[in-house]
Simulated scan of single mutants.
Amino acid sequence: MTFEYKRILVAVDGSKSSERAFEKAVAIAKRNDAKLILSHVVDTKSFATVDAYDRTLADRSEVYANSLLEDYKHKAKAVGINDVEVNIEYGSPKIKIPKDVAKSFNADLIICGATGLNAVERFLIGSVSENITRYANCDVLVVRKEETK
């Protein structure tokens, strides 16, 4: 029995590990003729110390997210993936990706990059990829950084 993924969600944030996650997502989507959902969650905890009326940081984050996702969408379409959708959310990526975004798109695979947190940070706050694997209702592929040769 073979299993094919039909709705692949890739979480991107502009980091090197999310770039590698995107590359793997594109390869898997092509192989499975799947829909590719590109998602970026604007982490609102970074706005916690900003005056509620100062929308500058939020606006810049949204502009960045749109630019990032449109760039990835263009790259995916350039290699032959026709069904590509972009998604921007606000909140905590570790909660939004597995509990909201994946469910709303009925994703059967989530792909994300491994984070660069050290052991203490992981213990105190937990990594995004760790939380996605814990709370997702579908398969999750965590892409590690490229091996140095």
Score class of each variant (00 low, 15 high):
residue 14 G to R: 03
residue 25 A to S: 15
residue 36 L to A: 05
residue 4 E to Q: 10
residue 61 S to D: 09
residue 48 A to G: 01
residue 125 I to Q: 00
residue 4 E to C: 13
residue 60 R to G: 04
residue 127 S to K: 09
residue 80 G to F: 13
residue 135 Y to A: 00
residue 92 S to G: 04
residue 13 D to M: 11
residue 11 A to P: 07
residue 1 M to A: 05
residue 83 D to Q: 10
residue 93 P to E: 01
residue 39 S to T: 10
residue 67 S to V: 12
residue 65 A to V: 10
residue 11 A to Y: 06
residue 142 V to E: 03
residue 4 E to G: 12
residue 9 L to A: 03
residue 138 C to M: 04
residue 99 K to H: 15
residue 115 T to H: 03
residue 23 E to A: 13
residue 2 T to Q: 13
residue 18 S to Y: 11
residue 129 S to P: 12
residue 22 F to S: 04
residue 37 I to Y: 01
residue 42 V to M: 02
residue 80 G to K: 10
residue 106 N to P: 03
residue 110 I to H: 07
residue 111 I to S: 01
residue 59 D to T: 09
residue 52 A to S: 10
residue 95 I to Y: 13
residue 63 V to I: 13
residue 12 V to Y: 02
residue 72 Y to K: 05
residue 41 V to H: 07
residue 33 D to F: 12
residue 29 A to E: 08
residue 2 T to S: 14
residue 39 S to G: 11
residue 74 H to S: 13
residue 4 E to Y: 14
residue 99 K to V: 11
residue 58 A to H: 08
residue 20 R to I: 09
residue 64 Y to L: 10
residue 59 D to Q: 10
residue 73 K to P: 06
residue 90 Y to G: 03
residue 141 L to D: 08
residue 106 N to G: 11
residue 85 E to H: 05
residue 37 I to A: 03
residue 146 E to L: 08
residue 78 A to T: 14
residue 102 A to D: 02
residue 16 K to L: 05
residue 43 D to Q: 08
residue 42 V to Y: 03
residue 64 Y to T: 06
residue 139 D to Y: 00
residue 106 N to R: 15
residue 81 I to A: 01
residue 61 S to A: 14
residue 73 K to M: 00
residue 26 V to Y: 07
residue 131 N to A: 09
residue 53 Y to E: 08
residue 145 K to R: 15
residue 46 S to N: 07
residue 19 E to L: 07
residue 108 D to V: 11
residue 145 K to C: 00
residue 52 A to W: 13
residue 67 S to F: 14
residue 88 I to H: 04
residue 59 D to E: 13
residue 36 L to Y: 09
residue 107 A to S: 14
residue 43 D to C: 03
residue 67 S to R: 11
residue 11 A to T: 09
residue 63 V to Q: 12
residue 8 I to G: 00
residue 23 E to V: 04
residue 21 A to F: 09
residue 111 I to Q: 07
residue 83 D to L: 02
residue 100 D to F: 15
residue 135 Y to L: 03
residue 102 A to F: 11
residue 88 I to M: 07
residue 82 N to H: 12
residue 33 D to L: 08
residue 103 K to M: 02
residue 124 L to C: 01
residue 79 V to W: 10
residue 137 N to Q: 10
residue 82 N to I: 12
residue 19 E to H: 07
residue 78 A to R: 14
residue 85 E to R: 05
residue 25 A to F: 04
residue 99 K to Q: 14
residue 66 N to E: 04
residue 93 P to M: 05
residue 103 K to T: 14
residue 22 F to A: 02
residue 56 T to R: 13
residue 137 N to D: 13
residue 6 K to D: 05
residue 83 D to N: 15
residue 81 I to M: 01
residue 66 N to G: 12
residue 67 S to K: 14
residue 142 V to N: 02
residue 94 K to P: 02
residue 93 P to G: 06
residue 76 A to Y: 01
residue 88 I to L: 02
residue 52 A to Q: 08
residue 83 D to C: 04
residue 84 V to R: 08
residue 29 A to L: 11
residue 51 D to M: 02
residue 136 A to W: 15
residue 7 R to A: 00
residue 70 E to V: 11
residue 140 V to C: 06
residue 149 K to Q: 08
